[in-house]
Design a protein around this nucleic acid. Structure first.
Lengths: 252, 252
DNA sequence: TCAGAGCCTTGACTCAAATCAAGGTGCCTT
DNA sequence: AAGGCACCTTGATTTGAGTCAAGGCTCTGA
C-alpha cells in the first residue's frame, strides 16, 4: 500500500538470466523438499527443461500480484516470500510465508488469475514452473500428477491448520506455533532448528496470526522472560523446545 | 465426542445401493456446479462409469473420519455435510459446510489419509469418486485434469477467505458473511437466495466462525432487531440484502 | 400428551487482546 | 556522523467477545 521503493521493474516479466548458475533439478539440494518423487532421471530432465530460473528478486519486490494472469507456479530457491491478499476495505491479510523448497502460486489455478500477491521479504530466487507445461507433463507422468495433487492437498491441510489456530488459540499459542513451524521447516532444509533469523517483520507476523504488532511484541517479551526464547530483534534462539511446544498447546 | 446415537454402522464401507435411482452425471441437475466442463458426452460416460452412488447417510452419520485411509473424494448429491478436525486437545474445529454439487475429501490426498472427518448434518446422498480411477482418467482427459486442479485451487482460495474472515472481522461480519455465502450457493443451485433452512446448529456455526454459541445467537438477535434477517430457529429469511452486505463489510 | 434432552436465547460479569500513546532502537542515506 | 524513518517495545485504558448462569423452546419417543 505504502512502500513502493524497490518496486520499479518488478513482477510478471521475469527474464531468464544468461549468467545463471548451472542449477538444475537433478543437482538442486532442495529437490528432496520440492520433488520427493520416484522420478526417473529422464523424467527429472524433462521437468528441468520446462523450469525457468530467473534473476533474484530484491527485498519487497513482487513476484506476482493479486489479479495478474496466472501462468506459472513458483518454487522458492533462496530467501523468503510472503503471500497476501488485500481485503475489500483495503487492509492486508498475510496468507503464508514461503521458504526455500516450498511452492507458491497454486491459488491462481482456479480462476486463471492470481488470488493473492507474493512479495519478497528479503533477496530471493525462485524457479518458475509454467503451468501449461506442467499439466502436459503431468498427463504423461503419473508420479508427477500425483505429486502435484498432493502439493495442493497439502496447501489445503495447512490452511486448515491455520484456520484452527486463528479460531481456537490464544496469542501465546499462535506465536509459539509459528516459531515451531519455522523451526521444523528449517530443520527439513538441514538448517538449525533452534537458531534462525526471522525474514518477516512483527507487523507481518501479527497480520498472519490475526494479532496486532503490540500483542506479538508482548508475547515475544513474555517468552523471553520465561526463558523459552532468546529474542534479539529478528534473531531467534529457542532455549526450551518443550516449553515452546507446551506454550503452543498442540500436543507436546 | 458425545453424540453417538445414529452412529452405528456408519462410515467407510458404503455399499452400492441396488435400488438406486437411474441418476448419472449426464442427467444430474447438479452437473453444472460439479462438472462445469467442456466434456464430450463420451467423456462424461467414462466419468460416470467410475462414480459410485450409495445409500443415503442419516443425520450425524460419518462419511469418513480423520485418519481413515484415503480412497475417494465425494460430491454431495443432496442434503448437507460438515467437515471438521479434532484438535490435539480434543476440541472440534469445523472447517467447512458442503451443499449439493460441492466436492469434499480433497484434503486427504496429501497423506493418503483423510485430514478431517465428514458428518451428515441431515439426511444426505453423495457420489463417491475413487481417486485412483480419477487420476487415471485425468491423465487421459486434459479437461478433467484441469478441472480437478481448479477444484483444489478453489478450495485453497476459499480457505484463505475464511482465514481472512477469522483474523480480521468482527462477530457481526463473520455471521453476515456466512449467511451471504449460503445465500449465494443456494442461488447457484436455483434455490431461493433469500429464504432457506440452515442445516447446521448454532454450535457448528460458532465453531466454524471462531465464535461461541452465545455470540452467534446474539448476532442473529441483533440482525433481527435491525430488520436485516428474519430468524425463526433454523429458518432464515433475508429481508435486506444490502444491509446484510454492509454488515458483512466485504465491499457492498 | 407428556417428559426429557438437546438446542437456543438472554443477562450479568470477566478478561484477553485491541487501541491509544509515547519512547527507544537500529539502519539507511547523505 | 547525524538525521530521519521504519520498526519495535512498553504502559495505560478500553472493549468485544467469552464465560457463567438461568430459563425457554422444540422435537422425539413412550
Amino acid at each position: 500500500m505504502t512502500i513502493r521503493l524497490a518496486d520499479a521493474g518488478d513482477g510478471v516479466e521475469l527474464k531468464r538470466c544468461i549468467h545463471d548458475y548451472q542449477v538444475n533439478c537433478g543437482n538442486c539440494r532442495l529437490n528432496s523438499i520440492c520433488l520427493p518423487l520416484a522420478l526417473e532421471s529422464d523424467d527429472i530432465q524433462q521437468l528441468d527443461d520446462i523450469i525457468q530460473r530467473s534473476k533474484p528478486l530484491q527485498k519487497s519486490q513482487h513476484l506476482y500480484r493479486e489479479g495478474d494472469d496466472f501462468q506459472s507456479v513458483f518454487a522458492v530457491r533462496s530467501g523468503a516470500l510472503k503471500a497476501y491478499k488485500t481485503t475489500d476495505d483495503g487492509r492486508e491479510q498475510v496468507t503464508g510465508f514461503y521458504f526455500p523448497g516450498e511452492i507458491l502460486g497454486m491459488d491462481g489455478i482456479s480462476n486463471n488469475a492470481h488470488a493473492s500477491s507474493a512479495k519478497a521479504l528479503e533477496t530471493a530466487a525462485v524457479c518458475e514452473i509454467p503451468f501449461t507445461s506442467l499439466e502436459r507433463l503431468s498427463a504423461m507422468m503419473p508420479n508427477l500428477q500425483r505429486h502435484f495433487f498432493q502439493l495442493m492437498s497439502r496447501e489445503i491441510t495447512e490452511d486448515q491448520q491455520l484456520i484452527t489456530l486463528l479460531s481456537k488459540n490464544s496469542a501465546d499459542e499462535r506465536v509459539a506455533s509459528l516459531m515451531l513451524s519455522i523451526s521444523t521447516r528449517n530443520s527439513k532444509r538441514k538448517l538449525s532448528a533452534t537458531q534462525f533469523r526471522l525474514p518477516m517483520s512483527r507487523v507481518d507476523i501479527g497480520n498472519y496470526l490475526g494479532l496486532t504488532v503490540e500483542t506479538v511484541s508482548r508475547v515475544f517479551s513474555r517468552m523471553q522472560k520465561m526463558e523459552i526464547l532468546l529474542v534479539d530483534n529478528k534473531e531467534i534462539q529457542i532455549l526450551d523446545v518443550d516449553g515452546l511446544k507446551k506454550m503452543a498447546n498442540l500436543g507436546v
